Amino acid sequence: MARDRPYLWRNHREAIASGYLDRGVSSAISFPTGGGKSTLAELKIATALLRGEKVVFLAPTHSLVGQTARALKKTFQSYDIIGDIEEDVTLVDAVILPEVTVTTPERCLMLMSIQPEAFAGLGLIVFDECHLLHPRDEDRSRRGIDAMLALLNLTSLAPEADLLLLSAMMKNTEEISGWIEWLTGRKCLTLDLAWKPTRQVRGCVVYPAEQISNLNKKILQARRAKPKQRAAPTALKRELLASPFGLFSLLQTWGTMDRQDYALLPLLKTPQPLSTGVRKLGGWYLTPNGNQTSGAIAAASVSAGMREVL
Rank of each mutant, 00 (worst) to 15 (best):
Pro208Cys: 11
Cys188Tyr: 03
Pro208Leu: 06
Glu175Cys: 01
Asp162Trp: 05
Leu163Asn: 05
Thr155Asn: 07
Arg202Met: 13
Leu220Asn: 08
Ala232Pro: 07
Arg199Cys: 08
Ser177Arg: 00
Ala222Gln: 05
Ser167Asn: 13
Leu191Tyr: 04
Lys226Gly: 00
Leu165Ser: 11
Leu151Ile: 03
Asn153Ala: 08
Thr173Met: 03
Pro197His: 11
Arg186Cys: 12
Pro208Lys: 05
Leu151Asn: 10
Lys196Phe: 04
Ala150Gln: 10
Met170Thr: 07
Trp182Leu: 06
Ala225Lys: 14
Asn214Arg: 15
Leu166Glu: 08
Thr190Pro: 06
Gln221Ala: 01
Ile219Gln: 01
Cys204Ala: 12
Leu183Asp: 09
Leu164Thr: 12
Ala209Pro: 00
Lys217Ile: 09
Leu157Gln: 08
Leu151Trp: 05
Lys171Asp: 11
Trp195Ala: 15
Leu220Gly: 07
Asn153Trp: 10
Ile219Gly: 02
Thr173Leu: 09
Gly178Thr: 00
Lys187Ile: 06
Gln211Pro: 11
Lys218Ala: 10
Ser167Thr: 15
Arg186Lys: 09
Arg230Trp: 02
Trp179Leu: 15
Asn214Met: 13
Thr198Gln: 12
Ala232Ser: 15
Leu166Tyr: 00
Lys218Trp: 06
Lys217Phe: 10
Thr190Asn: 07
Thr184His: 14
Asn214Thr: 01
Ala209Arg: 04
Glu174Lys: 00
Lys228Thr: 05
Leu163Cys: 03
Ile212Leu: 14
Ala194Tyr: 04
Val206Glu: 11
Met170Pro: 12
Pro159Asn: 15
Ala194Ser: 13
Gly178Ile: 13
Ile219Asp: 02
Ser156Gln: 14
Asn216Val: 11
Ser156Val: 10
Val205Asp: 05
Asn216Tyr: 04
Arg224Ala: 09
Gly203Pro: 03
Met169Arg: 12
Lys187Val: 10
Cys188Asp: 07
Ala150Leu: 07
Thr184Arg: 15
Lys217Cys: 06
Ala225Val: 11
Lys218Met: 14
Lys228Glu: 04
Ser167Phe: 12
Glu181Ser: 13
Ile212Phe: 04
Thr173Glu: 14
Pro197Thr: 08
Ala225Tyr: 02
Val206Asn: 10
Glu160Thr: 07
Glu174Met: 04
Leu154Cys: 06
Val206Arg: 11
Lys217Tyr: 03
Trp179His: 14
Leu154Gln: 01
Ile212Asp: 06
Glu174Ile: 08
Glu181Pro: 10
Cys204Ser: 02
Ile219Val: 08
Ala194Gln: 07
Ala194Arg: 10
Ala209Gly: 09
Leu215Lys: 05
Gly185Thr: 09
Ala168Met: 12
Pro227Arg: 01
Lys187Trp: 08
Trp179Gln: 14
Leu154Ser: 02
Asn214Pro: 00
Lys187Ser: 04
Thr190Asp: 13
Gly178Cys: 02
Arg202Ile: 04
Leu193Gly: 14
Leu220His: 01
Thr155Ile: 06
Ala232Gly: 03
Val205Leu: 14
Pro233Asp: 06
Lys196Asn: 07
Ile212Lys: 01
Val206Pro: 05
Ile176Asn: 02
Lys196Trp: 03
Pro159Gln: 13
Leu151Gly: 03
Ile180Gln: 12
Lys228Tyr: 08
Pro197Trp: 06
Asn214Leu: 15
Cys188Val: 11
Pro227Asn: 03
Lys226Arg: 14
Thr190Met: 05
Asn214Gly: 12
Thr198Ser: 12
Ile176Leu: 15
Thr184Met: 10
Leu154Asn: 00
Ala158Trp: 14
Ala222Ile: 01
Arg223Val: 00
Leu189Ser: 14
Val201Asp: 03
Lys187Ala: 11
